[in-house]
């Protein structure tokens, strides 16, 4: 059953404004109601064919509250995050648009924020971005005109003060729920909770963490964050995802910037007869441990090339506690009931 606040005139239209909310999207409402949320992420296609996006997100429907469209993740070229988000909105999904500081300067970024909001984007994630050396165009010019904190500050200024960074007035400010990323597993570890606080002070309303495979390290980070009173000031979305095999885990650890996978995890996968199934089991256990950790509002699932296993993992973990996130047939059903009632 969909919550009445989450139903708009059409699945693709912004929801009616609600007091205490900055955006007109579903994700902010689910989080503010205190429901444990699930978000996921797709890597946009290397294609101009919109059907490929529909095909990729289909397995998420009814299992996740929002879908991130990554912005050139790993510094690889793909369809743009804003275009993917606009296509997802047209289908009825709630996207989280990612903006990385690597590829655009402050002029382009602010223009994109206005454009994205005009297309119906309700959630924006502000990222520094992976270095160009990690991608398929290492000879590209890294821009990094803003950093993630300056980007958060900029979007908040655009939304709340109705001004560009230059001070020039915006006639229709972007109504967006703004987030950022944090990596609790990268050095300097003592500084990470303070950096989280810095991001919240700059305007972050939700925080997505890097993949969590190290529960004790995450628990230490969260304990420090709670000491600083941070979970009351922003929603923490803990990242996780299934590892396909021990070999894949080793490859990710060596090649994907910022992913910390303890040796014990790799040993556990190596010892399993069916490594893929063990990877999913491990992911389910991590999700359950994250949900039990005070201050975590949501799990953010990143399952590259294992998108079809999302439903199985979310179901097995029981994190939704029987709740069903938006699904197009639910809306169709409700509209049918309404029409009948009116007749």
């Amino acid at each position: 059953m969909l919550h009445p606040d989450d139903i708009g005139p059409t699945p693709w239209a912004p929801l009616p404004p609600l007091p205490g909310h900055v955006s007109r999207g579903r994700l902010e409402r689910v989080l503010r109601r205190g429901e444990f949320a699930v978000t996921a992420e797709i890597n946009p296609p290397d294609s101009a064919d919109p059907d490929e996006i529909e095909h990729r997100v289909k397995p998420f429907e009814g299992w996740v509250d929002a879908i991130n469209a990554t912005d050139g993740s790993g510094a690889h070229c793909h369809m743009s995050s804003i275009a993917v988000s606009a296509l997802l909105i047209r289908m009825g999904y709630s996207p989280v648009t990612q903006i990385s500081c690597r590829d655009h300067n402050r002029i382009a970024i602010q223009g994109n924020v206005l454009g994205a909001a005009a297309l119906g984007v309700a959630n924006i994630l502000c990222l520094t971005g992976d270095g160009v050396q990690a991608g398929d165009h290492p000879q590209a010019k890294p821009v990094f005109d803003l950093d993630s904190i300056a980007l958060l500050h900029t979007i908040r200024m655009m939304r709340d003060e109705g001004r560009f960074l230059s001070g020039r007035r915006i006639t229709g400010p972007p109504q967006v729920f703004v987030g950022a990323a944090e990596n609790p597993f990268a050095p300097p570890h003592d500084f990470r909770p303070l950096r989280l606080a810095k991001k919240i002070a700059a305007g972050a309303q939700f925080i997505q963490t890097q993949y969590c495979y190290d529960i004790p390290m995450m628990a230490r980070f969260m304990a420090r964050a709670r000491d600083l009173g941070l979970p009351e000031r922003c929603f923490i979305l803990a990242g996780c995802g299934p590892l396909a095999s021990a070999r894949a885990a080793k490859w990710i650890r060596a090649n994907v910037p910022g992913v910390h996978i303890p040796d014990a995890v790799i040993a556990r996968l190596e010892g399993a007869r069916d490594q893929r199934a063990e990877g999913k089991r491990l992911c389910v256990e991590i999700i359950q441990q994250l949900q039990a950790m005070p201050g975590i509002a949501c799990v953010h699932l990143m399952a590259y090339k294992q998108e079809e296993s999302i439903a199985e993992i979310v179901h097995a973990s029981g994190v939704l506690r029987g709740r069903t996130p938006w699904r197009r047939d639910l809306v169709a059903h409700m509209q049918a009931v309404e029409t009948q009632g009116a007749a």
């Binding site: 971005g129 990690a134 990596n183 050095p187």
Partner: peptide, 26 residues
């Protein structure tokens, strides 16, 4: 390499070295 003036990015390696230049401490 990213000119970050507000703190480290999320790519810092486990040994405290830079994501872009693995031989350079972050």
């Amino acid at each position: 390499p990213k000119g970050l003036r507000n703190g480290p990015c999320g790519g810092v390696r486990d040994d405290g070295h830079c994501e872009v230049h693995p031989d350079m401490p972050c």
